[in-house]
C-alpha cells in the first residue's frame, strides 16, 4: 500500500509542534541557567545569550546547601517510590485476584482519601506528626508521601494485574506452584512494566512535592529540593541564574530514572501469552 506523503508530513509537523511546546520551558530553564547575571536583564528576549557561563552551576554545587537538598530529595523520593510500589503491588494483586468481603469498602475508602484537597490535611497531619517527632525529618515526609500515594498506585497496579490473564496463574498452580510461587515467578515478571510505571510515577510525585515539604520541614538540614529552590528567593531579589541551575541539576535524577525504566515501560511483555 502506498501512503501519501502529505498526511505523514502533517502528522510529523503536529508532533514536532507539540514537542516544541512541551519542551520550551525546559529549554528556557537551561538558557537562563547559563546566562551570566549581567546579561539576564540587559539583552532583552533572546533565544540564546551572547555569552554563556557555568558560574551558576559551580556556585550551586559549591557554595549553597543544594547538595544537601538533593541528597534529601533522593532519599525521600527513592524510599517513597520503593515502599509504595511494594505495598501497591501486593494490594493491587489482592484487589485484582481475590474476592473478599470488605473489598468494596476498602476500595471505597481508598477512593475517599483521594477526594480531599491536600491543603485541608496539612494542619491535622502536622498535629499528628509533631508529638511523634516526625516533623522536620525525612522519615516523616516518607510516611506522609507513602500514605498519599499508596491508594492511587494500588489502582494503577491493579489495572496492570487485571491485564494479565488469570489462566497463567492457574496453569502455574496446576504445574505445581503455590499461589505465592505463581505470583512471584509468573505474574511479577510480567508486571515489570507496571512496576516501572508505578515507581516512576511515585518517584516524580515525591520529587516535586512542595506543600508538605514546606509545611513539615524548616531549616536546610531536612529540606528537599523543591523547598530548597525557594532559598534562592530572597526578600529583595530572586537569583534566577542559580535557581535555574539548581533546577537543571534536579532534572538529572528524574531523567536518569526514566531512562532506566523506559525499557519496561515500552515492552509489551504479555504478548504471546494467550491467543493474540
Amino acid at each position: 500500500m502506498k501512503t501519501s506523503l502529505l498526511p505523514t508530513i502533517a502528522h510529523r509537523l503536529a508532533l514536532l509542534g507539540y514537542i516544541v511546546f512541551a519542551l520550551f520551558p525546559l529549554f528556557w530553564l537551561l538558557k537562563v541557567s547559563v546566562t551570566p547575571n549581567d546579561l539576564l536583564y540587559s539583552e532583552g528576549v533572546r533565544m540564546w545569550p551572547s555569552r554563556t557561563t557555568w558560574e551558576h552551576y559551580s556556585f550551586v554545587l559549591q557554595h549553597s546547601a543544594f547538595p544537601t537538598f538533593f541528597k534529601n530529595s533522593l532519599i525521600v523520593s527513592g524510599s517513597t517510590a520503593i515502599i509504595v510500589t511494594i505495598c501497591a503491588s501486593l494490594s493491587g494483586y489482592a484487589l485484582s485476584r481475590f474476592n473478599f468481603r470488605a473489598k468494596y469498602w476498602i476500595v471505597g475508602l481508598m477512593l475517599l482519601t483521594q477526594m480531599f484537597p491536600l491543603v485541608m490535611l496539612v494542619a491535622p497531619i502536622f498535629k499528628i506528626l509533631t508529638p511523634l517527632g516526625l516533623t522536620n525529618s525525612l522519615t516523616g515526609l516518607i510516611v506522609v508521601y507513602t500514605a498519599f500515594n499508596v491508594p492511587f498506585a494500588t489502582f494503577l497496579m491493579q489495572s496492570f494485574f487485571d491485564g494479565i490473564p488469570k489462566d497463567l496463574e492457574e496453569a502455574a498452580m496446576i504445574d505445581g506452584a503455590t499461589k505465592f510461587t505463581a505470583f512471584r515467578e509468573i505474574i511479577l515478571p510480567l508486571t515489570l512494566p507496571g512496576i516501572a510505571a508505578t515507581l516512576g510515577f511515585v518517584f516524580t510525585a515525591a520529587w516535586s512535592e512542595l506543600l508538605f515539604a514546606l509545611m513539615l520541614i524548616n531549616g536546610n538540614n531536612a529540606a528537599t529540593f523543591p523547598v530548597g529552590l525557594l532559598t534562592f528567593v530572597s526578600k529583595f531579589s530572586v537569583d534566577f541564574g542559580q535557581m535555574m541551575a539548581a533546577g537543571v541539576l534536579a532534572l538529572i535524577p528524574a531523567a536518569l530514572f526514566f531512562l532506566l525504566i523506559q525499557r519496561y515501560l515500552v515492552q509489551g511483555l504479555t504478548a504471546g501469552a494467550v491467543k493474540g
Binding site: L168, D175, G272, A273
Partner: peptide, 20 residues
C-alpha cells in the same frame, strides 16, 4: 486439595503459556 497436589495436567483454551 490444592491444584498443585492433585498431579493433573491441564491444557487451556487460551494456551496460558508463560510469555517470559
Amino acid at each position: 486439595l490444592h491444584p498443585k497436589d492433585r498431579d493433573i495436567a491441564m491444557v487451556f483454551q487460551s494456551y496460558a503459556l508463560y510469555p517470559h
